[in-house]
């Protein structure tokens, strides 16, 4: 595959006329635009949704569809969110239905009118996922997305938000991964490009 890639790249680079340029400057657009269609092979928005809910064998199918593929309830991931939540996590049907409604279609939501610092699921939960009640939402580099997700699936996050009654079926041993971000200072910076230099 690598050989094929290199051959393709060589031909492609010659055809398009690569414009090389220095950093930190406005550059001249290439003059030739490639034609033809590209077919989606991978898709991602919210972290760890496929990984938690969906059997590995079904990931490829999810990666290849639009997040809006209709009916939403026909998406394999939608169905597996339901079955995992009730059969593996042991929650009630209302809990499963609420997770399905939040997580499908799979997108990261952000409110660009908000001045906050960002917090995973901040828009969907009205700011409940951050101590400062941030409603910009999105997802920051430092967010503990695993703990936030575990709280929604195995903990009482949804009932605490008033979305559903508490079904009393929390799994405390699965409500936190119990590890903080390591080397946080290496991973997050205050200036562009904001994510830390490679090790």
């Amino acid at each position: 595959m690598r050989q094929a890639l290199i051959s393709f790249a060589a031909i492609y680079a010659l055809g398009i006329g690569v414009v090389s340029c220095g950093s930190s400057s406005t550059t001249t657009p290439p003059v030739i635009t490639p034609s033809g269609s590209f077919i989606q092979i991978e898709r991602l928005a919210r972290p760890a949704v496929k990984e938690l809910f969906q059997a590995f064998a079904n990931h490829d199918g999810t990666n290849r569809i639009s997040p809006a593929q209709q009916p939403l309830s026909g998406q394999t991931l939608y169905q597996e969110i339901g079955s995992f939540t009730t059969n593996v996590a042991g929650r009630d049907a209302a809990h499963a239905a609420t997770l399905q409604a939040i997580l499908i279609p799979d997108e990261v939501s952000a409110d660009l009118s908000q001045p906050g610092t960002g917090s995973y699921l901040g828009v969907e939960t009205g700011g409940a996922t951050a101590a400062d009640k941030d409603t910009f939402g999105g997802r920051t580099l430092a967010d503990n997305v695993i703990d936030i997700s575990l709280g929604a699936v195995f903990g009482n996050t949804l009932s605490a938000l008033g979305l559903i009654p508490d079904d009393g079926k929390e799994s405390p041993c699965l409500t936190t991964q119990n590890v903080p971000q390591q080397n946080a200072a290496d991973n997050v910076t205050t200036t562009f490009p904001y994510v830390g230099a490679p090790h």
């Binding site: 077919i39 991978e42 928005a45 997040p67 799979d106 990261v108 939501s109 409110d111």
Partner: peptide, 16 residues
């Protein structure tokens, strides 16, 4: 609304 919903994709001309 100023809300946006974001996802990322990768694609190839062959789908593989």
């Amino acid at each position: 609304s100023s809300k946006i919903n974001v996802w990322a994709t990768t694609s190839t001309t062959t789908g593989s």
